[in-house]
Design a protein around this nucleic acid. Structure first.
Lengths: 148, 148
DNA sequence: AATATACATTTGTATATACAATTGTTGTAT
DNA sequence: ATACAACAATTGTATATACAAATGTATATT
């Protein structure tokens, strides 16, 4: 059953509820697709996001609070998320000498290499997911997202 | 840090990737909001969806496959999701006598009563989430969602 | 009728996530 | 200097989720 069909069965539901259900259904679909693309690389979507954030730091180390903020998820995950990435050798973690409450997290060169491979796969997947949307429509969508 | 800020830090990322990140960030935000609204009623978002699907059946019982299809999630969850709802007395499950492979799942009157309370809370939350979007924009959004 | 195949659900297990409580560190007020 | 609050990260625990395998049932094949 595709998304449109599911929504159709709920026509009696007011527009607001329908929009939110619709939103989540599409999101789930995207999630499944993206996760399956990342699977061969043995990183979860969250781990992938952490790696991208770290690369975006351009060498500047990140601490857990920053990662957490950017991910819009709970702190509790972040420690263990980073643990997993350390096990894979994709990031390293050192306690900040000036402020020992903080830790500094960096992407390793191995992490960067892995990320480059994932990027290519992701790019293909993203194009496929968005293949029915024109550039104009993508802009429109992003504009609407900004209203949330 | 709000969604727009997070996206801004990723400006170097191509439009497709940005759109998908944006999508997920907004979705997470909606999820958190909705979950916190449902919390007092001690049902998860998934459980709430099951209840709504069952009510939408208008007395016609649903089987697990149907529920699973409508939820766009994995079957593995559905059995245990229904288990939880049974424990709460919100649904019941009987094995179909004509075809014992199937089970019939129905919402109970208690489940309906609970759902009505949740509906009100959800409606308020949904309005709040979508407060910056006009009816026209909601339609536009749903139109774009259909292209996924 | 016996066996194989497909189907619907359940169970097992490993991993992920949410939430609360704890630990260790720094800054501040007395 | 000591005590206290604020902060950053970690740990514990319970629950949720994903994926694979198993169970039980119906249908098809020979």
């Amino acid at each position: 059953m595709n998304v449109e069909q599911i929504i159709k069965t709920e026509k009696e539901i007011p527009l607001e509820s329908r929009t939110i259900i619709h939103f989540m259904l599409v999101n789930n679909r995207i999630n499944e697709k993206i996760s399956s693309v990342l699977k061969p690389y043995e990183v979860s979507l969250q781990q992938f996001n952490v790696l991208r954030i770290l690369r975006g730091q351009n060498g500047k180390p990140a601490n857990l609070s920053t990662l957490n903020e950017r991910m819009v998820t709970k702190m509790s995950n972040t420690t263990r998320l980073v643990d997993k990435l350390i096990l894979k050798g994709f990031v390293n973690r050192i306690t900040c000498p000036s402020n020992r409450r903080k830790v500094e997290i960096n992407i390793t060169s191995e992490g960067k290499k892995a990320l480059i491979k994932m990027d290519t796969a992701m790019k293909t997947a993203e194009k496929k997911i968005l293949k029915n949307l024109s550039k104009k429509e993508l802009d429109q969508l992003n504009g609407l997202f900004n209203k949330f």
